[in-house]
Design a protein around this nucleic acid. Structure first.
Lengths: 227, 227
DNA sequence: TTCAATCTTTCATCAACCTTAAAGTGCTAT
DNA sequence: ATAGCACTTTAAGGTTGATGAAAGATTGAA
């Protein structure tokens, strides 16, 4: 479960990161609204905790813009004030829950569990492998560890879709040629190689640890580069 | 939007029913936990408001059992006590949100909107994307940043309505042809293209930053022009 | 070292996509 | 009725960029 934490106050941020990590969440921390929005848009987070008061862009605005772009990630808004109107604005800006500082960690964790339960059912058709997330409905490949993403062409998309769906297996040229191009004769296998080359470039571009390895005489395999 | 209200105290129940109906929700009221659970299991509700203290079975138990049976309906828990442990138990029992009595109706309504947002894509009859606002009841598209607006034809309206409702995704010609025209055969896909052209003109007319981008081999995508 | 397997780059082509114009359809006001 | 209007469909020609073929470079097994 991957959480985006947006909080500018250093002490608070450090404490929250520590707390969340201890609870086995993967946490990424952003210190201002603009970067938080950018990170959210990558679509790799299962939920987000946003502080309202932040430089660049406040939490409400981040939520509003993210929702406006179709990002459905559950958001928990965090604020110092406990005014009713703040709560209402928070929730109407697109947040799913609202918590007032100071709060007890027990309550924060309970609310996160509640949000997380829901996010499971809202995962769209995105496939994962290693540090990669492939969103077929957006034709986009993103690297979870750094948020970088690329647009894929139709062939590239179908290659990755096929390989993600057959993890650990070695795909032969023939399988790929038939599945993706509908080719029958060996003559056209070079196409597979060409597109493997294109696809590898995209993997490198997003900075993924995953690579497409050729297995001589057999075909191609998706695997994580050894450290 | 259909809400299940489970509350045993008559006066409170009556007030809530009145409030919710006024907000145009369809409300069904149950006075004890057992009937609330039975009602929830029917699966017809978009959300549920459960009082914790109820005869037969308390709210926590109703939530827990419903979740156990795979019911995913969003639940808002209502209670007189404000103990932290209560909140934690409430959320962990499967509730999505938790509100302590006494509460202000504004907050209750905001929280319900937050819960209901997932099932309904539009709140006030107008869909938004980027600097655009689409009023479906008036068949009007307006650009928020300059107030300029245009009248849309039925097809244009339905194209935008569909695309606004599936933000961030790439819509295929086929999806659009089937959804909007009821076409089955590829021959008529040119219609989609023609209407995309018309619709683009309207986007340009109102001076929006949003554009309809074709994604070769895949379909169309709504996005904001890069600065 | 050899050579077959695999990789990469390049580039003309053509399907995919765009636009415009004209004809068709159905509604409303006169 | 009929003209005018708004919207839709059909058709045809124009544009464009992903695609696949070709060719040369690189790799690794024997």
């Amino acid at each position: 479960m991957r959480i985006l934490l947006a909080e500018d106050e250093k002490r608070m941020a450090a404490a929250l990161v520590a707390l969340l990590k201890q609870e086995k969440y993967d946490v990424d921390h952003m210190a201002d609204g603009a970067s938080a929005l950018a990170a959210l848009e990558s679509g790799v987070y299962d939920m987000a905790v946003l502080d309202v008061m932040m430089p660049e862009m406040n939490g409400f605005e981040v939520a509003r813009r993210a929702r406006n772009k179709g990002i459905k990630t559950p958001i928990l808004m965090l604020t110092a004030k406990s005014q009713l109107d703040d709560k209402v604005e928070g929730l109407d800006s697109g947040a799913d829950d609202y918590l007032t500082k100071p709060f007890q960690t027990k309550e924060l964790l309970a609310r996160l569990r509640a949000l997380g339960r829901r996010s499971a059912s809202f995962q769209d058709g995105s496939l994962k492998y290693g540090d990669l997330s492939l969103d077929t409905s957006k034709a986009t490949l993103t690297c979870i560890s750094n948020g970088q993403s690329v647009r894929l062409g139709e062939k590239e998309l179908r290659i990755l879709e096929y390989m993600f769906g057959n993890k650990g297996q070695i795909m032969t040229r023939e399988q790929l040629a038939v599945k993706i191009w509908g080719f029958e004769n060996e003559a056209e296998y070079n196409n597979v190689e060409v597109y493997m080359s294109f696809t590898r470039k995209k993997l490198a571009f997003v900075g993924s640890k995953v690579e497409i390895k050729a297995v001589r005489g057999l075909g191609y395999e998706l695997r994580e580069k050894n450290v």
